[in-house]
Design a protein around this nucleic acid. Structure first.
Lengths: 111, 111
DNA sequence: CGGCATCCCCAAGGATACTG
DNA sequence: CAGTATCCTTGGGGATGCCG
């Protein structure tokens, strides 16, 4: 999303997390990787609508942020697999709380 | 942030939550309101960097989404107070999980 | 005080083509 | 297959001014 960064503010942890998942497709990618490691092409298909350029860019950022791992298998044709790091798994767990809230929020009238 | 919406996908709850907090200052606002209700001008000061236009717009969206309540006191000068709804408090709780992850993530090397 | 209206800008993202 | 390179579009947000 783009979250205001206020160093020192007591919500900076949230801001940091938001910065990591800031990107239109990152949560979807994280979610898909939760099930199992995936190749680039698989992710393209699993995350409909994302372009190659943007998927590659966001994967790089997620890798830089240490939430996913990029494994290159030297073969022909090339094979690259992306997987969650332990940190990434923790992030997904934290996102689940948000997911539960969202599901509850979506209900027209909940109990 | 702007999160890909994939109706039917099993992460749609997360997407819904992300949509609600999508806005550069929304999390900060939510955070400030956690402590106590705040007036418009207070929020401006508490959330440094936000413009009047954008603050007003994001407050409207948060209100539309049912996470904050807008109370207008008919006085001169005008007085408007914003507060969290129960739904908003739940959202903040869910965000705390993310905040804890973020804090952990920020540590150079954690135990 | 608490806004809304207007104009502007720029970075994130989309489309397409090309490459190791 | 798994990307880069290039060009282009969009809209969220910044700055400023006016109003009840």
């Amino acid at each position: 999303m783009a979250v205001a960064q206020r160093p020192g503010a007591d919500h900076c942890g949230v801001a940091a997390a938001m910065a990591v998942i800031d990107g239109k497709w990152k949560v979807s990618v994280l979610w898909e990787l939760e099930r199992c490691p995936r190749r680039f092409g698989e992710l393209r298909r699993l995350v409909p609508g994302v372009s190659e350029k943007v998927l590659a860019a966001q994967l790089r950022e997620l890798e830089t942020d240490g939430v996913i791992h990029r494994e290159v298998y030297e073969q022909v044709p090339p094979r690259v697999e992306y997987s969650l790091t332990p940190l990434g798994r923790d992030l997904n767990t934290a996102l689940e709380a948000l997911g539960e809230w969202g599901t509850k929020y979506l209900l027209p009238d909940s109990a």
